[in-house]
C-alpha cells in the first residue's frame, strides 16, 4: 500500500492482514555538484524498487513516506529514525524494513530499531533500458524473498 488516503483507509480496516512496512532511506547533499546527480539517481532507483515491491505485495506491505537526510549525517539520524520505527511498530506493524543504497548505514545497523535492507547501488544509467529493467527485477525478487523469510 502507498501512503495515500485511499490505501491508508483500507489499511485501517484491514490492519490484521498488513504487518510490514518499508521506509526508504534517502541521502542527499544539495551543496555538492559532484554528487547531486548520483544521489538523485539513487533516489529514483529507491522509488522504483519500493514501487515494484509495493505492487507485488500491496496486500501486506505499506511503503512509508521517504526518510531524507543530508549525506553523511547517519550517526545523528539514528535517533530520529528510531522514533519513526517505534511509532510504526505501535500500530502494530511488526516488520519494519529500512530500504537504502547508502552503505554508511552498515556501521549503524545494530543501533537501528528497524531491519536494515541495504542493497549496493548501480552506476547512473537509463532506468528504462530493458537491460536495467531485467537487472532491477531480479534484485527486487531477491529482496522480496528476504522479506518473505520474515513472514
Amino acid at each position: 500500500m502507498q501512503w495515500t488516503r485511499k490505501d491508508l483507509s483500507l489499511y485501517i480496516k484491514e490492519k490484521e492482514y498488513i504487518d510490514t512496512l518499508i521506509i526508504p532511506l534517502i541521502p542527499f547533499n544539495p551543496a555538492s555538484d559532484s554528487n547531486v546527480t548520483k544521489e538523485a539517481f539513487q533516489r529514483e532507483l529507491n522509488q522504483l524498487f519500493t514501487h515494484l515491491l509495493e505492487k507485488e505485495y500491496r496486500g501486506r506491505i505499506i511503503v512509508s513516506p521517504e526518510y531524507d537526510y543530508i549525506t553523511g549525517s547517519n550517526e545523528t539520524e539514528v535517533h530520529r529514525i528510531n522514533q519513526w520505527v517505534e511509532r510504526f511498530q505501535s500500530q502494530p506493524l511488526s516488520h519494519v524494513f529500512l530500504f537504502t543504497f547508502d552503505p554508511k548505514w552498515k556501521k549503524w545497523e545494530q543501533a537501528l530499531k528497524g531491519q536494515l535492507l541495504w542493497v549496493p547501488s548501480m552506476n547512473e544509467r537509463d532506468l528504462h533500458s530493458s537491460e536495467t529493467k531485467s537487472f532491477v527485477k531480479e534484485q527486487v525478487s531477491q529482496i522480496s524473498e528476504l522479506i518473505k523469510a520474515y513472514w
Partner: peptide
C-alpha cells in the same frame, strides 16, 4: 487485498494459484 498471485508456487498445491501474502 491485491497482492500478485503465482501459479503452482506451493509444493502442496501444484495445480492452484497461490497468494504469498495471506
Amino acid at each position: 487485498l491485491g497482492c500478485t498471485v503465482d501459479w503452482a508456487s506451493q509444493e502442496e498445491y501444484p495445480d492452484q494459484f497461490y497468494c504469498p501474502c495471506h
